[in-house]
Amino acid sequence: MNTLIVYYSLEGNTDFVAKKIADKLQADLLRLVPVKKYPEKGFAKFFWGGKSAMMAETPELEPYSVDWNSYEQVIFGFPVWASNITPPLRTFIRDNHELKEKRLAAFACQSGKGAEQAFKKLTDTLEGNTLTATLILFDPKVKPKDENEVSIQEFCDSLS
């Protein structure tokens, strides 16, 4: 099954996992990049990211191209911000109605909690689509664990 992984990563955790999944599934990657970057450190990172997520903002993204006829499955990846999906992912979903015809899954990286709520909000944003599989990881790049590798493999197995 041809798969596209669409993801946003601020600190590298989501990018780290997206590349692992892409390698296992031989999937293509699309990293979402907002035109206006989010702060990467300190209080500003949490304030602006959390505010943007809670307000369901949809920032402008740098140009990208997707040939929807090439994909049967789309996997979303995102860090959890204020128990929500990241705004760049929200923009992507809003702008791509072709997603309604695809098999969808998602993975989330978090430092604390909120991924379950974020998946619910993601499903609400998808307007009728459901997620066939989900995966939650805790800071997988900065806090690697053997169990993460097992979880990633199980997630991939459920999608192939």
Score class of each variant (00 low, 15 high):
Trp81Glu: 00
Glu98Lys: 09
Ala133Asn: 06
Gly114Thr: 06
Val6Trp: 07
Phe155Ala: 02
Asp95Lys: 07
Asp124Tyr: 10
Phe43Ala: 12
Pro140Ile: 05
Ile93Asn: 02
Val150Phe: 09
Phe47Ser: 04
Phe76Cys: 02
Asp139Trp: 04
Leu61Cys: 04
Phe43Met: 14
Ile93Pro: 00
Asp67Val: 06
Thr125Asn: 11
Ala115Phe: 03
Gly114Ile: 12
Arg103Thr: 11
Glu60Gln: 12
Phe46Val: 05
Pro144Lys: 00
Trp81Gln: 00
Thr14Pro: 01
Thr3Glu: 05
Val80Trp: 00
Thr14Lys: 02
Lys145His: 11
Val35Cys: 08
Val142Ser: 13
Tyr71Gly: 01
Val150His: 09
Gln153Ile: 05
Lys113Ala: 15
Glu60His: 12
Ile136Glu: 13
Ser111Val: 08
Gln73Ile: 12
Thr134Gln: 09
Ala106His: 10
Pro59Asn: 03
Ser9Val: 06
Ser151Lys: 08
Asp95Phe: 04
Ile136Gln: 11
Asn69Gly: 13
Asn69His: 11
Val80Ser: 01
Gln26Ser: 12
Trp48Asn: 03
Val33Ser: 05
Asp157Gln: 05
Ser111Gln: 14
Val80Lys: 01
Pro88Tyr: 14
Ala18Glu: 03
Pro39Gly: 11
Leu131Lys: 00
Val66Met: 14
Ala82Ile: 13
Phe138Leu: 10
Pro140Val: 00
Asp95Ser: 15
Asp23Cys: 10
Lys41Asn: 10
Asp95His: 13
Lys41His: 12
Asn2Met: 13
Ser52Val: 06
Thr91Ser: 14
Glu147Ile: 09
Ala44Met: 14
Pro63Leu: 08
Glu154Phe: 11
Thr86Met: 15
Asn69Pro: 01
Glu98Leu: 11
Val6Glu: 06
Pro144Arg: 11
Leu104Ala: 02
Leu29Pro: 01
Gln26Asp: 14
Tyr64Gly: 07
Pro34Cys: 11
Asp28Pro: 13
Gly12Arg: 10
Tyr71Glu: 03
Pro144Thr: 08
Lys37Tyr: 08
Leu126Trp: 03
Lys20Asp: 12
Thr58Tyr: 03
Ala27Thr: 00
Pro63Thr: 05
Phe43Ile: 04
Arg94Trp: 14
Pro59Ala: 09
Leu137Gly: 01
Asn2Asp: 13
Ala56Met: 15
Glu149Asp: 10
Asn2Gly: 10
Glu101Arg: 08
Glu62Leu: 09
Met1Ser: 14
Glu149Tyr: 09
